[in-house]
């Protein structure tokens, strides 16, 4: 019953149960310390708070938005193009829809764009990078990385635009377009990290003890690159949201009357300078979301950098 195991750093013997308990406690303490450091940095706190607020607004949009029906096909020409007031804090657009409500619903599209793209892109990119890095110098490495080079040879927005243009313009297809363009960045990041780790002794020792390739890739190598990957994810949320808003600005993303932030900026730009609020508030909406994720990402990076030092 009481199996005895030796754990590095502990001369005495402990039961497996105790080891697990200890590991759990350690993890909890580390998390607590990280959280303390994170919360001491005002910029990271602002970033984190912004992200949480935006996510909550997006989830509860139908309950938070003052005029939830304005996110749907809706017209109220009597109240068209009203400047910001108590009744309409961000004003109304050219057909009388409350811009604040539409911006809140716009967060939904922006966030779902970022989440869907990254949920697909990160595993694919990381897996390819790991494999190419582990089989460094073989034909697998060459094939994967040369294909990656081709995708990286054109600025991502341009190819995303091209792909989106071939498909029917809507939110889902713009997600596909961005997804197809984004994985090479993760492959390259992980490839660099993995090919550095590949020659470490722990990999060689795992190989000699007969560990299987999946074990070496995911249990030995991958845990060493969690922090740069997470930092990149947080920063990339901002970038994907920007690219998504660019696609919908051009008319290849979220289609009106749905309130995509980029779509709203594009249609509002026609009414500058007199009805400036129609374009400016959705634009500020984009800036706020992206700023939140960037501050959060920088905070995470500082945190991980401090831990490594």
């Amino acid at each position: 019953m009481a199996q005895q195991v030796n754990v590095e750093g502990f001369a005495s013997t402990m039961t497996r149960q105790q080891v697990r308990e200890l590991q759990r406690k350690n993890r909890r303490e580390n998390l607590g310390r990280a959280w303390y450091k994170f919360s001491r940095n005002p910029l990271s706190t602002i970033g984190g708070t912004t992200v949480v607020v935006v996510v909550l607004l997006a989830i509860f949009a139908p309950f938070v938005a003052p005029y939830p029906e304005h996110a749907k096909p809706f017209t109220d020409f009597a109240n068209a193009s009203r400047p910001p007031s108590w009744e309409y804090p961000f004003g109304t657009d050219e057909i009388g829809r409350d811009i604040l409500s539409r911006v809140i619903f716009g967060f939904r599209f922006s966030l779902s764009m970022g989440i869907v793209v990254l949920v697909i892109v990160v595993p694919v990119g990381v897996l390819l990078g790991l494999i190419a890095g582990y089989y460094q110098g073989t034909w697998i490495d060459t094939t994967v990385m040369r294909i990656t080079d081709i995708f990286l040879a054109v600025p991502p927005l341009i190819l995303a635009l091209a792909i989106a243009s071939v498909l029917e313009p809507n939110l889902f297809h713009s997600m596909i377009a961005i997804t197809l363009m984004w994985w090479p960045w993760y492959t390259r990041l992980v490839y660099g990290l993995a090919s550095a780790q590949r020659n470490e002794f722990y990999v060689a020792s795992a190989e000699t003890t007969g560990a299987g390739t999946p074990h070496i890739l995911f249990r030995e190598i991958l845990p060493n690159m969690v922090s740069p990957i997470f930092t990149k994810i947080s920063l990339d949320m901002g970038w994907v949201i920007i690219i998504g808003s660019m696609l919908s600005f051009v008319g290849l993303g979220v289609q009106p009357p749905r309130p995509g932030l980029g779509t709203m900026v594009a249609s509002g730009a026609k009414y500058l300078p007199d009805q400036w609020w129609i374009a400016i508030f959705p634009a500020l909406g984009i800036v706020v979301v992206v700023l939140g994720f960037n501050l959060l990402g920088d905070g995470l990076r500082d945190l991980f950098a401090a831990e490594e030092a």
Partner: peptide
């Protein structure tokens, strides 16, 4: 860094171009 270029473009257009 966090402001997309088309937002800058619209701000500049509004401020330096039109106003």
């Amino acid at each position: 860094v966090v402001t997309p270029s088309f937002v800058f473009a619209i701000l500049f257009l509004l401020l330096f171009g039109l106003v």
